[in-house]
Design a binder for these strands. Structure first.
Lengths: 268, 268
DNA sequence: TCAAGCCGGTTCATTATTTGAACCATTGGT
DNA sequence: ACCAATGGTTCAAATAATGAACCGGCTTGA
């Protein structure tokens, strides 16, 4: 691993729940020497990628990301395009729609849209982290990722988010062929109790899976009608999203059912 | 300069007008060896900081910034807080309000707010680059920056954006004492023809100037009344913004005039 | 009150990584 | 068919990263 990668990898220790970290902590977490971490953090700081907060001299992410994110979004208006799809998807299903991108061996949420239709909704946050094994989105991504990647992910310890989380690698692997067949994954209460989510993979220009689009509804609202609506609408929205981002589903990817309810009955 | 800094500095060659660049171009621009650039870009790419676009294999900024920007904004809701101030500032002045952050020796726009009051407005964009010598915001920042920094900036060649741009370092230096005295800078047509902008510096927790808040109006609309409104409102908004961001103006920074119109007459 | 233990930060001889000229293989224009 | 670009790769030589030990300061608790 090059020096630049080491510096960049330090940024991964900042998260929603750990917005600032001290020098010694980063050294411990990364396994690097304190002197090394200090030098790397200083370099990051000089470019505005991190900054030090007054008191405990802890580090936090810097303002440079706002600028670079704006430039990225200007060059590739992914978020904007995705938001448009999510908005219609949440409106037409009446439930929360969101999209997340693969980042290492984890998904991070890119955007979401609520339907202000019911009193209760599944909540979502930007940059929220979704694990691959416990979420519908994660399963969708796993099913369309190289087996070597799947192996890496499933060989690590899988934490149970809820009592419903499937943590047996074999059980997870067993689900993947069907997800591949229908082009969509489901997870009931695997990540959050009482949440039923459907997810479909999104592909880039080289037909690699880069993330997933999903619709999440409270388990209590999930009827056959809603399930059918979500499945057909999500399939189309995901396809449009892949295309609008300049990507292509792999040749093996199933077409959304127009007249053939076979796949749907298999899903249900 | 460490290796990590070299890698990070490559990101600066991406801009609004140059969203993607080829390997050889980056090597030329940075003066680094092609092999070096290739290795650094590969490391950046492996972390999602850049990505390669299909055809010409050119590089562009990657999706990682969306995630990190969301985390930064969650940890430090600078943009959100600033937006609130800008919104009221643009409403009360009836003109375009914006705020930019110092990034190296250039300002990059963080946020802006239009007043939908007149048929014509000064336009603004996220991550737009503002030079220090040709903009009101830049002058405000220069006036409250260390002299060594001012020297560095003014010793470089100063390009004339318009026929009104002041490119003589001496003339610019001559303006700074008064800007310091009144706590606000003005620029008439220095960056864009027919734009009259007022700008006030923003400070961090260590009283260092980190950027500027500004109000930009068409020259044709600038009356004495509007000027007075802008000056008083901007002074207060900038002060509130500094405070709300956890910063402090330096001890020498003038208080907004409550009952003493002396400073204002000096400004006008 | 004092000492132990933590913190962020620094030093400098040792070590491992980065560097860059020269080299491919492709592509596009003349 | 050629030339001049492009992105990408190689490997000895040069340079930068590393980390154990060290500061001084702060907090803790005996």
């Amino acid at each position: 691993m090059g020096t630049a990668s080491k510096a960049l990898s330090l940024l991964n220790y900042f998260s929603r729940s750990t917005p600032q970290i001290g020098l010694s902590d980063i050294a411990r977490l990364s396994g690097m020497n304190k002197a090394t971490v200090h030098r790397l953090m200083s370099e990051l700081a000089s470019h505005g990628f991190v900054e030090q907060v007054g008191a405990g001299r802890e580090y936090r992410l810097g303002p440079a990301f706002l600028r670079l994110a704006a430039l990225r979004e200007k060059a590739v208006p992914m978020r904007e395009l995705v938001m448009a799809e999510l908005k219609t998807l949440s409106e037409v299903t009446g439930e929360t729609a969101h999209m997340s991108l693969l980042n290492g061996d984890v998904l991070s949420n890119l955007a979401y849209s609520y339907a202000h239709l019911h009193g209760t909704m599944v909540m979502m946050e930007d940059a929220e982290v979704l694990e691959l094994h416990s979420t519908g989105s994660g399963l969708a991504v796993l099913a369309f990722s190289p087996t070597s990647f799947v192996d890496t992910v499933l060989n690590k310890p899988l934490v149970a988010r809820t009592s419903e989380t499937i943590t047996d690698p074999k059980a997870i692997r067993a689900q993947l062929p069907q997800i591949r067949r229908v082009g969509m994954a489901q997870s009931i209460g695997g990540f959050e109790q009482d949440v039923h989510s459907h997810a479909a993979p999104i592909f880039d220009a080289t037909s690699h899976c880069i993330g997933a689009m999903a619709v999440a509804a409270p388990v209590s609202r999930m009827t056959d009608t809603l399930r059918t609506t979500i499945q057909t609408e999500l399939a189309h929205a995901a396809r449009r999203t892949t295309r609008v981002l300049g990507g292509f589903p792999p040749d093996t990817f199933p077409l959304p059912d127009l007249a053939a309810p076979a796949a749907e009955s298999e899903l249900t």
